[in-house]
Computed example of a mutant assay.
Amino acid sequence: MKILWRQLISLMQGLFLLIAVIFLKACASKQVHEGPLQQAEWDTKAMIRDMKENKTQTVSIDLMAVKNQRVRLDVTAMMGFNVASLVMSPKEIAYAIYPKKEFYYGKNSEKSIERIMGLSLHPMNLANIAFEEPVRGPGWICEQDNLKVLSKCENRQRSIRVEWKDRTPEGQKKVVITAPQLEMQWLFKPPQTEVQFKAETFTLKQPDGFKAIQIN
């Protein structure tokens, strides 16, 4: 009886040791993924208020990005109605506006999306906002909170402000963008980090029947 009892205790000790090893490996693996993101996919929703027209629209935005390299955004309204798709690199941009059947392509710059969003902002900054990186460009000043985490970027000359709020440890957050012509509350779910993008993910062709407009 004593022998069986000792064998049982030995077995339990071995089991606890195995569990501890697995737990430590899991923690080590988790620590690797908690480093700065290099690529990710976000499921987001945005409530956009047009100050000039005094209208508010809520859309879903799927954002896929490789930091500082490639970005894709697909915008849909209620019931899955396609609003726009956009792909870009730091130097080139292409986007389709489905309701208007217009396809824009050309040089990526601060003027690229001003006609559709009322923002004089380099579009690559949309990915910087998702990655919680400072907004880049002339006149932008960014601040950190007491925990040394990016909290606000502002361009006083253009009256544009970006604020990160309501962060959670899982990566959920709210970003508030205010400008003279719009206010945007952008809600991010936790990012999907285990992603492998295909080359065609960041390619957008002119849809049939769409008018092509070159951006200079």
Score class of each variant (00 low, 15 high):
Arg72Leu: 02
Glu114Ile: 06
Leu187Tyr: 05
Leu8His: 10
Glu102Val: 05
Val71Phe: 01
Leu37Phe: 14
Met88Thr: 05
Phe23Val: 09
Leu150Phe: 02
Ile93Asn: 02
Tyr104Gln: 12
Ser10Glu: 08
Gln7His: 05
Gly80Lys: 06
Ala96Asn: 05
Lys30Asn: 15
Lys165His: 05
Gly106Val: 01
Asn68Cys: 02
Ile61Gly: 15
Arg70Trp: 04
Tyr95Pro: 01
Phe202Glu: 12
Ser151Arg: 07
Val75Leu: 06
Pro191Arg: 12
Glu34Arg: 09
Val135Lys: 00
Met51Glu: 15
Lys111Ile: 05
Ile129Glu: 04
Ala84Met: 02
Lys25Cys: 06
Asp62Phe: 04
Ile113Asp: 10
Ile61Glu: 05
Glu114Gln: 08
Phe197His: 11
Leu126Met: 13
Val66Asn: 02
Ser151Gln: 12
Thr44Cys: 10
Glu41Ser: 10
Ile19Trp: 08
Ser109Trp: 00
Ile160Asn: 11
Gly14Arg: 07
Asn54Gly: 08
Gln196Met: 05
Glu92Lys: 08
Val32Ala: 15
Ala84Thr: 07
Glu41Thr: 03
Gln206Lys: 15
Lys100Cys: 07
Arg115Ser: 11
Lys205Gly: 13
Gly137Arg: 00
Ile19Asn: 10
Asn108Gln: 12
Ile113Gly: 14
Gly106Phe: 01
His33Phe: 01
His122Cys: 11
Ala94Arg: 08
Val135Pro: 11
Pro99Leu: 03
Ser89Ala: 04
Asp166Arg: 07
Ala65Gly: 15
Phe131Thr: 12
Ala127Gly: 07
Lys189Phe: 11
Trp140Leu: 13
Arg136Trp: 06
Ile160Cys: 09
Trp140Cys: 13
Ser151Ala: 15
Val75Asp: 02
Ile113Cys: 12
Arg115Asn: 14
Lys148His: 02
Gln214Leu: 03
Asn125Tyr: 01
Arg161Lys: 07
Pro138Cys: 04
Val149Lys: 07
Pro191Cys: 12
Cys142Tyr: 01
Gln144Lys: 08
Glu200Asp: 08
Glu170Asn: 11
Arg156Met: 04
Lys111Asn: 14
Val162Ser: 09
Glu133Cys: 10
Asn82Leu: 01
Met124Leu: 05
Gln57Lys: 13
Leu204Met: 04
Ala94Thr: 06
Leu17Arg: 11
Lys205Gln: 04
Asn108His: 00
Asn128Tyr: 10
Ile141Pro: 01
Pro123Gly: 10
Lys101Asp: 08
Ile116Ala: 03
Ser112Arg: 03
Asn146Glu: 14
Ile61Val: 14
Phe202Ala: 11
Glu114Asp: 11
Lys100Ala: 07
Gln144Gly: 08
Pro134Arg: 03
Lys67Phe: 02
Leu150Asn: 09
Ile93Gln: 02
Ile116Cys: 04
Ile129His: 00
Leu86Ala: 13
Phe210Gly: 12
Trp140His: 14
Asp74Gly: 04
Leu15Lys: 04
Leu204Phe: 00
Leu150Cys: 13
Met47Ser: 08
Phe188Gly: 15
Ala65His: 05
Thr58Tyr: 01
Met1Asp: 03
Leu37Glu: 14
Ser159Trp: 02
